[in-house]
């Protein structure tokens, strides 16, 4: 397994280099000259030139030891992403945004995973019953309603009309106060698709002979479902769950924006809006690294839960 991990880590080098090249091309070449935007409407050419110099935009793009791409590469490798357009170090912004983001994303993620897998097991067991039909109907309805509608209605009714929750984040609020409503909305919106997926996975497993055998042996429903069926359904669950973890880093773009939670999703969406490439670049790079890393973890988990999978 160690050899496999080392091999996979070596594979990440060209992937990361590719990501760096792609982000560089997108932001530096396709995205236009940001010095004009930084300079503002009334700037003259000499100020624009000075900004280009300050941000290294007057350097060659590729073919030099001091080229823009080499500097882009160096900053990524050292995690020194420079300063954002408001002159605050990008890394400070990211550090500050992690806690609020995770306070929403982690409970939401765990809630969705726990509830959807549990419910999926149950409705798969009672497939064809009224419970199953109602659950599938609710899932489809939930998937059909736009995400934004849940946010707008949730905020209007639960926060404004019935005053259960604060409408918007303010620094004095405790985490459970500002995070609960966004988390609940996130769970409700996430349940539909996940539950349907896990239900299908569970149904496939339920059809297998070993389930009938287990029941025939006289095992209780709980044991059959949670010990045998769940364990055998782990491969698709791990794939979905572990690969979703890197996205937690990006936060919940819409939820954070509508509830004013100063997390990484808010940071990212604001950076896109204000074309702060320094932040977008750092976030894209870190997300890519996490994605590659969690891909590796997924593969390792396969081997751990399924003896048929060998990493060598």
């Amino acid at each position: 397994m160690t050899a496999y991990i080392i091999r996979r880590l070596i594979y990440t080098v060209p992937i990361v280099a590719g990501v760096l090249l792609l982000t560089f091309v997108l932001f530096s070449m396709v995205g236009g000259d940001i010095s004009l935007e930084i300079a503002g409407k009334n700037a003259n050419q000499e100020t624009i030139n000075e900004i280009r110099h300050e941000y290294g935009l007057d350097k060659p793009l590729f073919f030099s030891w001091d080229s823009q791409f080499v500097n882009h590469f160096k900053s990524a490798m050292t995690f020194d992403f420079g300063r954002a357009r408001d002159r605050e170090p990008v890394i400070d912004k990211i550090k500050r945004g992690i806690a609020p983001s995770l306070s929403i994303a982690v409970p939401m993620f765990l809630g969705v995973v726990f509830i959807s897998i549990s419910l999926a097991l149950l409705v798969a067991f009672v497939r064809g019953s009224a419970w199953d039909t109602v659950t599938v109907f609710i899932c489809v309805a939930g998937m059909s309603i736009p995400y934004l509608s849940f946010i707008l209605f949730g905020q209007y009714f639960f926060a404004y009309k019935w005053s259960f929750f604060p409408i918007y984040f303010t620094p004095g609020l405790k985490m459970y106060q500002y995070a609960t409503l966004p988390v609940l909305i996130g769970i409700v919106t996430g349940l539909g698709s996940d539950l349907r997926f896990y239900r299908t996975v569970m149904l496939d497993e339920m059809k297998n002979d070993y389930v009938r055998t287990a029941f025939a042996k006289g095992l209780s429903t709980r044991k059959v479902l949670f010990k045998h069926v769940l364990k055998n359904a782990m491969i698709p669950i791990i794939t979905t769950v572990v690969l979703a973890i890197p996205y937690l880093f990006l936060g919940s773009l819409l939820l954070e924006r509508f509830f004013g939670i100063p997390g990484l999703g808010y940071l990212m969406i604001e950076a896109i809006g204000s074309r702060d490439y320094f932040i977008i670049n750092a976030m894209t790079y870190i997300s890519a690294i996490l994605f590659v890393l969690f891909n590796l973890i997924t593969d390792i988990c396969y081997a751990l839960v399924d003896p048929r999978v060998s990493l060598d």
Partner: peptide, 18 residues
Amino acid sequence: WSIIQEEQPLWLLFMNGQ
């Protein structure tokens, strides 16, 4: 000053007296 980019929360906060 709260930085609020979406109109709905801003309007609701205003209506709520916040």
